[in-house]
Simulated assay, not measured.
Amino acid sequence: MKTIMTLVLLLVTLFAAAQQTDQDLLLFEQAETLVAKGKYDEALTIVNRLLISNHDNADYFDLCGTIYLGKHIADTAIYNFNTAIMLDPENPYKYSHRANAFLSVQMPGESLEDFTQAIKLIKDNDTLKYQMIGNRGSARQMARDFQGAYQDFKTALDFDSLNIQALISMGSILDNLGKPREGIAYLEKAVRLSPNEVAAISNLGFRYTNIGEYQKAIDMFNKVLELSPNDGVAYNNRGYVKYKKNDLKEALKDIERAIKYYPANSYAFRNRALIYFAMKQPDKACVDLQRAIQLGFTPMYGNEVQELLEKHCLLNGTH
Rank of each mutant, 00 (worst) to 15 (best):
L9N: 12
L9R: 13
A18M: 10
T21K: 14
D24H: 04
Y40F: 15
E42H: 00
A43P: 09
T45E: 15
R49K: 10
S53Q: 14
H55G: 02
C64H: 14
I67A: 06
Y68A: 07
A74F: 12
I85S: 07
K94T: 02
R98I: 03
A99M: 12
N100L: 09
M107W: 01
P108G: 10
G109V: 01
G109L: 11
S111W: 00
T116C: 08
A118V: 06
I122K: 00
I133H: 10
N135R: 15
F146P: 07
G148C: 13
A149H: 09
T155D: 15
L157I: 02
S161D: 13
S169E: 09
G171M: 04
R181M: 11
Y186T: 00
L193H: 12
E197I: 04
E197F: 12
Y208N: 00
N210D: 10
I211R: 05
Y214G: 05
A217E: 04
I218P: 03
V224G: 01
G232I: 03
Y235N: 00
L248S: 01
A251K: 12
E256M: 10
R257V: 00
Y261N: 05
P263G: 12
A264L: 13
S266G: 11
N271G: 00
R272W: 04
A273C: 07
A273Q: 08
Y276C: 01
V287W: 05
A292Y: 03
G302L: 11
N303T: 14
Q306G: 09
Q306V: 10
E307R: 14
L308A: 08
E310V: 04
K311H: 09
H312T: 08
H312E: 14
C313D: 01
